[in-house]
Every structure is written in structure tokens, then in C-alpha cells.
Design a protein around this nucleic acid. Sequence first.
DNA 1: ACTACAAACTAACATTTGTTAGTTAGAATT
DNA 2: AATTCTAACTAACAAATGTTAGTTTGTAGT
Lengths: 189, 189
Amino acid sequence: MKSQDRKKEIIAIAAKLFKEKGYSAVTMRDIAQAMDIKAASLYNHIRSKQEILVLIIIEIAEEFTSVMNEIMLSNETCIQKIEKVIQLHIDITVRDTDALASLNSDWMHLADDELAYFIKMREEYEENFRKIIVKGIADGELKDLNTEVIIFSLHSTLRTLYLWYGRKKGFNAAVLKSNMTQVLLHGIV
Amino acid sequence: MKSQDRKKEIIAIAAKLFKEKGYSAVTMRDIAQAMDIKAASLYNHIRSKQEILVLIIIEIAEEFTSVMNEIMLSNETCIQKIEKVIQLHIDITVRDTDALASLNSDWMHLADDELAYFIKMREEYEENFRKIIVKGIADGELKDLNTEVIIFSLHSTLRTLYLWYGRKKGFNAAVLKSNMTQVLLHGIV
DNA sequence: ACTACAAACTAACATTTGTTAGTTAGAATT
DNA sequence: AATTCTAACTAACAAATGTTAGTTTGTAGT
């Protein structure tokens, strides 16, 4: 069905606009204008503005959840797991920069079920992240520093990668990962 | 003048609401309701919704700019300078969590002059940050890793501290700084 | 007591916003 | 050739939004 292509176009353009001004500041007329059609025509393809946001955010959130779950099941060292998580964030950032921006900045505009679903996924994700770090310290793979600070430091950098990627040249995913891993794991001093 | 107190109340409450839902999603009626008055009454104290945003953001941006300038003028090692920057971010985060959230998420809703002013300050700030890192590497104080990645890693963590602070207990500014410095400068492995 | 003022109120406004209804031009299917 | 379907359109809607005008009420200073 060709209609699905058009729908994806709308979602992609909306994500780009949401990244620039945020969900609430982007109107259906803005999205329509960016597609060179009228606002009412959007409704031939999508049910509502809300639906656009849901489609942008939930798919990516589910990808994070599912890959993280795979990582947890694997028989790797904690450091290897952390590297896989870094890889995960870089991959999604490179592939889906705009959508990731919405996920980070506009998740609170999800409603009811989807909001609850998103928050649940995020909590699970953070919980898994924490488990990796705690085990890493217990096993002596990581320095015995404050768990929360370690988690926050790693997580905040990975989460906001999208703000930075794209403005900087000369980074393919592989180069980025190796630099990132160095800095995040081994420090800069 | 007592009126200034009321104005500061409005700004504080607005900042809190902006942090939760973003500037565009918060209405004057929301702000008024949170203060137990009617929306029209707000205009006895402030000129416009825009003005609220400007007052929230610009003051903090100027503080970052001015303290960073002091740091640049000092005769310290690069590592000491980085520690001072970490301190700066922690201090402002602890003192002005809500306003910092607006600065991070809603700066793009500033208009005209203030938008340009803000962007100029941000660029100056980043420029100074970069100078510190580049010199640190040149002097052998820092490892010779990719400059941009180092900057981004430090900066992203410091910038989003506000998302994390407040949910976590047991951190006064001093403890936080020492943990943060350890993790950011010396790594976790 | 009289005046001045600060800070709230009610009522209303012009726009903007998300959305619906009904229509139309063209392409695909029968 | 006739029919169905797709995806655009115009027109309009009710609700929400930022803001203004004019009014009221209580408090402080004379």
C-alpha cells in the first residue's frame, strides 16, 4: 500500500519539526506546509496529532527495550555489556536522530496508556542499566565509585548524543563508538 | 517594592511548570491557577508570557558566561579549570533546577534579540570550554583523545544534571562534585 | 476620613489550533 | 466506459490561547 509510505513521510517530517520546536509548538498546519499540502489532508493518513507522536516514540522505545533485554541475557562481561549499550545508542542516534529527539523531549506529551507504557519501558531500561553497573563493581570490573553518578554520567551522554551528532563531521558510527568508549570508560586524565 | 516579590513568585512557578511540560504547553491560565489567581491578574506583574521566559533564561545564561570568563582568566591548570566548571554547573543546578531546565529545553522559544543574545553566549561558552580541553591535551594534562568527544561527554553530563538532581537523595553539592569529578575525569574502569 | 495605589477581578477580544464534513480531480480496477 | 479508490481540496467548527479594558477591593500614607 502506497498510503503507508505517505504516512511515514508525515511521521518523518513531523519528527524533524518536533526536534526543532517541540511537540506543542508544532501545529498540524506547520506539518502540512512542510509537506506542501493542507492541514486537513493529513487526516487522510493519520488519525490525530497524538498518533503521530505515539508512532514516533513508541517504536524506538521498544527497540531500546528489546535490544537491552538481549544484552542482559548474554554471557558477557559487564564492560562488554556497557559497550553494547553504547553501540545501541549510537546506532539508533545515527539512524533515527529526529525521532530520538522527540523521545527525549516530548515523551511527556504522550497520553494515558502510551504514557504509562513508555514510562514502564524507561524504568525497565534504567533498571537493567543499573544491574550492569552494580554487577560490574561487585566483580571488580569497574571502580567502586558511586553507582548513581556512574549511571547518570553514562546515561546522560548517551541520551543526548542526538543533539551533537550531525553537527560534527568525520564520525561514522564505528569511529564514534571507539572514541566514546575510551572517554566514557577510561576517562580523560 | 513588594511587587517584585510577586513577580519572582510568578517566574519561579512558571519555571517549574515549564520544566514539566515545556514552554509551549504551559498556558497563562496554568500559571495563574498554580498561583491561585486569574490569568489576567498576571499582567499586573509581567508584560507577557515571553517576558517570563526571558527572565528565567537570560539571568542564568549570563551567570554561566560571567563565571566561565573568570575561570578563563585564572592561572590554573586545565584540570583545575575543568573542576571549576563542574562546580559551576553543580552550583547552578542545585540552586536553580527549574530555571536550568527551561534554559536547556525552551531557549528556542526566545525571540529576536534575546534569542540571538542567548545563542551568542552559548557559543562563547562552548568556545571557552573547547579552549580548556585543547590546551589540556597540548600540555599533556589530558589524554590525546578526540577533542569533540571529550567536550561532548563532559558537557552533556553537566548540562543535564538538572534531570537527575532532586530525584536522588544523599547528595550535597560537595559530595556530588567529588563523585562527578572522579567519574568524568578518571573514568570508571 | 480621604486619597492613592497595588493587585486582584470579570468580561471580552482576535487568533490560533486540532479536527470534521463534504467535495473534487485523477488513477486504478472492473 | 463505468466504477471505485486515493489523496488532495475548501469551508467551517468549537475550544483554547495570549492579551486588553475596565472595575472592584483592600491597604498604607496623609
